[in-house]
């Protein structure tokens, strides 16, 4: 689900930076106002944990491998705000340390995965509890909801940025293409994320209790 630079029009990444910027500022202020001295170190390691979780890859039938998104797990473990900031930091560091990821796509990724995915995952968990179903759906929604948002944003491009002759200036396909092309594979990837969340929790849970 990595959107490269060049697919998103300024009409979209501009406002996306605006929205994400406000949320980043609010998140960082919340972090500072909490008088918990561990808050900043916790966010730093949450970022590293999110980074490591994203590197976990699983084989799909047919011989390809897929990286899990890890969004659901990060959100369940660290909460929506921390997850949003941590995932945003991962995209920022990936862009700078590896030169990948793309700065025009960064706010879209941060909002889609960091915010949309985290909210969906934590919502699923609140609704269904920390049982197997709740954890699975947290992992699944944490992957699928961002895919829907990314598909929506990509499909928006030909509507908002067109040349004088009506041809698209950025990503050329509308929703009729992006929704099935992006979302359907992620319905399957989400299963991997969900199962992973359930299994990892089974390892972690016995140690959570005093």
């Amino acid at each position: 689900m990595h959107i490269p630079d060049g697919f998103i029009a300024p009409q979209v990444y501009g406002p996306a930076y605006g929205a994400a910027g406000v949320l980043w500022a609010v998140g960082l202020r919340r972090l500072r106002r909490r008088l918990d001295p561990a808050a900043v170190p916790r966010l730093a390691v949450a970022t590293a944990a999110a980074f490591a979780l994203m590197m976990v890859s699983l084989p799909l039938p047919g011989g390809t491998t897929v990286h899990v998104s890890g969004v659901g797990m990060v959100a369940v473990l660290f909460g929506v705000w921390q997850a949003f900031l941590a995932l945003s930091l991962v995209y920022l560091l990936q862009a700078f340390m590896l030169g990948t990821g793309g700065v025009t796509a960064l706010p879209v990724n941060a909002l889609a995965m960091g915010l949309g995915g985290s909210l969906a995952a934590v919502g699923a968990l609140r609704l269904l509890g920390r049982g197997r179903v709740g954890l699975f759906l947290a992992g699944w929604f944490g992957t699928v909801v961002p895919a829907v948002i990314v598909a929506f944003v990509l499909g928006l491009q030909p509507l908002v940025a067109r040349a004088a002759d009506g041809t698209p200036l950025f990503f050329p396909f509308g929703w009729a293409v992006t929704l099935p092309a992006v979302v359907i594979p992620h319905l399957a990837v989400g299963v991997a994320d969900g199962v992973l969340a359930v299994l990892a929790w089974r390892i972690l849970a016995p140690q959570e209790e005093p």
Partner: peptide
């Protein structure tokens, strides 16, 4: 196997993160 390995890896990094956060603080 991949799932089992992925889950154990994920859990290890989560625990390690908690440990590092405490040590860093």
């Amino acid at each position: 196997t991949a799932l089992r390995h992925g889950a154990a890896t994920a859990a290890w990094f989560v625990r390690r993160a908690e440990h590092d956060a405490a040590a860093m603080t």
